[in-house]
């Protein structure tokens, strides 16, 4: 069973690496879009999937990252990709400031507060807050990224850049999942009170998860800004946050492979329905319901973690 899974993963990687050979530009762009949303989904997964917090305002952090990149790169000429850590940091600090007072709110109350957050950020962007966001026009003329001296502007170049970032994200979050921090989060999600009782500092862990997710979304903002070369507030609406949310829950919250699959379904599916013209979104909505009904835990729910306890027993004998 385990081997079968690795074969699929390997096939998937080979598919991505060779995609430019047989996919045209449009499908490469669809893959790029899916890749961006996959990273966003994975970053939200830290908060929703592991932390168990109902967070529907992730686009706020994505927007802050994208705008940080756009503003600094257009006015100071700093190469775009260098701004990735800074964008992440800005988003992370913002998350830290706003999340502190609200992190203790229960499920649905937190949900509406995060929705409020993304709306406040969007309204601030539209109203040209501090005179730097360009209002409804947004910011244009963001330079293309360069990597090792190569200018990245073709679809297949972005494919490798974006999916490279997906790979880094997967690696990092996979390690995180199996770390002390990741285990604490899962515990916290399963039973907050028991976790608190066992000495897990719940508020601190929740806050850390929130800030980490925001940091990561801010970094994706850089990629988005570099890819589009123009950003405007309508790209960061509440509906965007809803999309990330659907990616995580539909794919299988708490499972890395599931979230990536979720990105394919939520972002890819409407592209397949293009031929249906006006019926496109109707079919998409219906597909969402059906997938959810038939796979009520998400399409790829996380497997029950089996911790190898044998090493704690003398001689490894079964009890």
């Amino acid at each position: 069973m385990k081997e079968k899974r690795y074969i699929v993963y390997a096939l998937f990687v080979v598919f991505l690496l060779t995609a430019p050979l047989y996919l045209n530009r449009y499908w490469l762009e669809v893959l790029n879009s899916v890749g961006l949303y996959a990273i966003l989904g994975l970053s939200l997964n830290i908060i929703v999937g592991y932390g168990g917090m109902f967070h529907m305002g992730h686009a706020a952090f994505y927007a802050i990252g994208a705008y940080t990149t756009a503003i600094i790169s257009t006015s100071y000429g700093v190469p775009v990709l260098w701004l990735m850590p800074l964008s992440g940091l800005t988003a992370g600090v913002f998350a830290l400031v706003v999340a502190r007072p609200i992190i203790h709110l229960r499920g649905d109350y937190l949900l509406i507060v995060t929705i409020g957050l993304v709306e406040i950020v969007r309204i601030a962007l539209i109203n040209n807050v501090f005179g730097i966001t360009g209002g409804a026009n947004g910011i244009f003329g963001i330079p293309r990224p360069t990597l090792f001296g190569y200018k990245i502007f073709k679809s297949h170049q972005f494919l490798y850049l974006i999916w490279g970032c997906v790979a880094v994200t997967v690696f990092f979050f996979y390690r995180l999942e199996n770390s002390r921090f990741g285990r604490a989060l899962v515990y916290l999600k399963e039973d907050e009170i028991a976790a608190e009782g066992s000495g897990v500092h719940t508020a601190r862990y929740k806050l850390a998860a929130f800030v980490l997710g925001a940091f990561w979304a801010g970094m994706v903002g850089t990629l988005f800004a570099a890819k589009m070369t123009i950003i405007s507030p309508e790209s960061f609406s509440f509906w965007e946050s809803v999309l990330y949310f659907m990616i995580v829950i539909l794919g299988g919250s708490g499972n890395i492979a599931g979230v990536i699959l979720g990105a394919f379904l939520v972002i890819g599916l409407p592209e397949f329905f293009r031929g249906l013209e006006n019926y496109r979104l109707l079919m998409f909505g219906a597909a969402m319901i059906f997938m959810m009904i038939f796979r009520t835990q998400g399409i790829l729910p996380p497997r029950q973690k089996v911790f190898d306890v044998s090493r704690f027993r003398k001689g490894g004998e079964p009890i």
Partner: peptide, 11 residues
């Protein structure tokens, strides 16, 4: 939507 428009344009 700008993102979907860029996909439509690529298509």
């Amino acid at each position: 939507d700008p993102r979907q428009a860029s996909l439509a344009a690529n298509r």
